[in-house]
Computed example of a mutant assay.
Amino acid sequence: MKFPVLAITLDLDDTLWPFAPIGARIDQVLYDWMREHSPATAAMYPVAAMRELRERSFHDNPQLHHDLSALRRLTLREALENSGADLALLEPAYEAFYAARNQVEFYPDALDALARIAAKVPVAALSNGNADLQRIGLAHHFSFQL
């Protein structure tokens, strides 16, 4: 069967860039941020403990699997509450995470391939993650993001 390609959808992580180095960096950036802004939270939740809390939040909240940003905020809220920290730190902590999450290193051929594809058909980004096409500098290649 032959048919014309009318659009392409992409998941971003592990398609345009590898996620593993980002994930490791995010954990460390968030820990360092907590050490500076909420030492009690950092002491209670070093990297491995925060990762366990995040995994538990994911497991306990399947209704949020489509929204990893909401799950991340839920994890941060719980860590801050459990350590007696000021909940006003939630959004600044999330922003530290979000900034680090959107620092990506593209696969060598990814940008050229994306530009060639986007010149021929509309490209849509589909993800449950936190990649921000504007911050990354890719929004101009995509017709839609969900």
Rank of each mutant, 00 (worst) to 15 (best):
F58G: 00
D86R: 01
A85C: 14
E105C: 12
L53F: 04
A7Q: 03
L71C: 01
L16M: 07
F106D: 06
Y45L: 02
N102A: 04
L89G: 05
R35I: 07
I136F: 04
E81F: 12
F106H: 12
R51E: 01
D60F: 12
F97Y: 11
Q28W: 14
D32S: 10
R56D: 10
F106L: 14
Q63W: 07
A7S: 09
P46I: 10
L53C: 01
L80C: 02
A99E: 11
D109E: 08
I22R: 05
L146S: 03
F144R: 14
F144I: 13
E52S: 03
A119G: 09
A131H: 06
A88Q: 06
E91P: 05
P46Y: 13
E55C: 02
L30W: 13
A110N: 02
Q134W: 13
I117W: 12
E81N: 11
G129H: 11
F3D: 09
V104I: 15
Y98V: 03
L80H: 09
P21S: 12
E105Y: 13
P92L: 06
L10W: 04
E91Q: 15
L6Y: 00
G137Y: 12
H59A: 15
Q145C: 03
P92C: 11
F142I: 01
L64I: 00
A118N: 15
A110D: 04
L64G: 02
A110C: 02
T15C: 08
N130L: 10
A88W: 02
F97D: 03
L114Q: 08
E91C: 03
N61S: 15
R72G: 02
P21C: 09
E105W: 12
L53T: 03
L90C: 04
D14M: 02
D86Y: 10
I22C: 14
D86F: 05
S69K: 15
F106R: 10
G84A: 08
V121D: 00
A119H: 10
A99V: 08
G23W: 10
E36M: 07
P18A: 15
A48Q: 15
R135Q: 11
T41V: 13
G84T: 09
E55P: 00
K2Q: 13
M1P: 00
I8K: 01
N102Y: 06
A79N: 05
